[in-house]
Amino acid sequence: MRAPLRDPAHRVSRRAIALWFVEAIIGFAFLMGAALLIAYLLDRSGWSALPGWMGDRLWLLPVAVGVVMLPLVVLEPLLRYAVHRWELSGDVVYARSGWLSRQWVFVPVSRIQTVDKAQGWFERALSLATVEIRTASHAGSSTIQGLDYEVAAAFAEELARRAQELRDDAT
């Protein structure tokens, strides 16, 4: 049994896959660096509390990290592209995000306080943008990543306009 919700109408831009891939690679590099550092330090300290079989095979730690994490680096962008979707219908923003976990967010336009359009370094290079929709509560706020810049601009514009028309301050 799955949550009885239909898919939001629009996918994000295909270039978002590249964005998530780059981000995943960077994350992986940090993790690998940490694993190598820990293995190196443990090896040098010769910590006696470790049983011998573990102490002799410290190189297994970075290898294990690589084996487990590398497939995820490839998988994450693809899964995200499948999961991330958004839609504006009936004056409600409906967005889905996540890759292993999922999130569905429903934000009625009447409760929106600010709409931001943001671009990081990589997003600029790929001409992508993130739309941040804020309400009085962080739990009722939504962030839609990986939109094509033109789409994001039009969407943010539309949201801001509708929010102005519908404004309802009953926070």
């Binding site: 949550a3 976990s101 999130q103 967010v105 009722g140």
Partner: peptide, 20 residues
């Protein structure tokens, strides 16, 4: 009327158990 939005969250494990 104080509610400004909903967020439904499901981790992998919640998904396997069919809860959110």
């Amino acid at each position: 009327r104080a509610i400004v939005g909903w967020r439904l969250r499901q981790t992998v494990f919640q998904r396997m158990s069919g809860v959110l």
